[in-house]
Design a protein around this nucleic acid. Sequence first.
DNA 1: GTTGTTGCAAACGTTTTGCAACGAC
DNA 2: GTCGTTGCAAAACGTTTGCAACAAC
Lengths: 151, 151
Amino acid sequence: MSPQSHLRDTLRGSGRRLTGQRRLLLELLQQHGGHLDARELYRLAQERDPRLNLSTVYRTLGLLRDLGLVDEQRLGEDHHHYELRTSAAHYHLVCQSCGSVVEFTSPLVEQLKEAVGRELDYTITAAQIDLLGACAACRAAAGRAAEETGD
Amino acid sequence: MSPQSHLRDTLRGSGRRLTGQRRLLLELLQQHGGHLDARELYRLAQERDPRLNLSTVYRTLGLLRDLGLVDEQRLGEDHHHYELRTSAAHYHLVCQSCGSVVEFTSPLVEQLKEAVGRELDYTITAAQIDLLGACAACRAAAGRAAEETGD
DNA sequence: GTTGTTGCAAACGTTTTGCAACGAC
DNA sequence: GTCGTTGCAAAACGTTTGCAACAAC
């Protein structure tokens, strides 16, 4: 089932309406892939519909989040990022130097949830994991910079 | 080395000053244990020094964070929480029903950092991990509530 | 006395909301 | 036509900042 038809069906079912703005925003989220923030989605949307308002972006993102179509994250920053929910759970690896974000999964995460939940008697439903570090490109750039100045 | 003497020494070393406000805020963080937000720390501090200002709380928390005395986290909420940095890295398990926070560690986290860093060629320096779920008490309460209404 | 720090008020960036006009059904 | 949705402006929220008075050194 595509996100667009899921959206239409879920809205219909709860007496809500499928508007052009909602269709556009979902489409942009699909095209972009991932990790957009509200401001950037707003900017993209305005290229296609200049009258669209930032509060509509926020209201729509909240709706899509509540419908389970979109995941809301905080990648170590002071505002949210949004991405279309994919079937597979995944986590984020953030380069603190250039800000790039890579997704990853690992069977170790399931093991961790299982082990910690059992030990502390919690039923664990979700995990937010952000690993922070330096990507290969930034490490190389930092190495070159050090060579030029000091050494 | 106690946090108070670490504070004094580090301030001295960088030409900064040890003020009553800074001593008080650090002391409250010590006494409370963990996971205070700025508002709550402000409230506690005002009981002892009613003239103390919220911006001083923020400035001091930022300073203590930069000095490495305090860790700043976002436990799935829209504002920061702060806790005295302990020697051991740890992560958080949050009950989504009652909001209680439990700390945990697990050797699986080191394994995860190692495995993901190697696979994607990142040098991983830190991990933020929040596991979300339901604690035993809230599960029991939810069970009782379900019994009374339906079923 | 010098200069880093504070309290205060005002600003900031992100997100939410009240409300009348609008548009999907 | 009904009623959910939008655009707009204004507010809310946590947090930061400019500045003159203050206090640690």
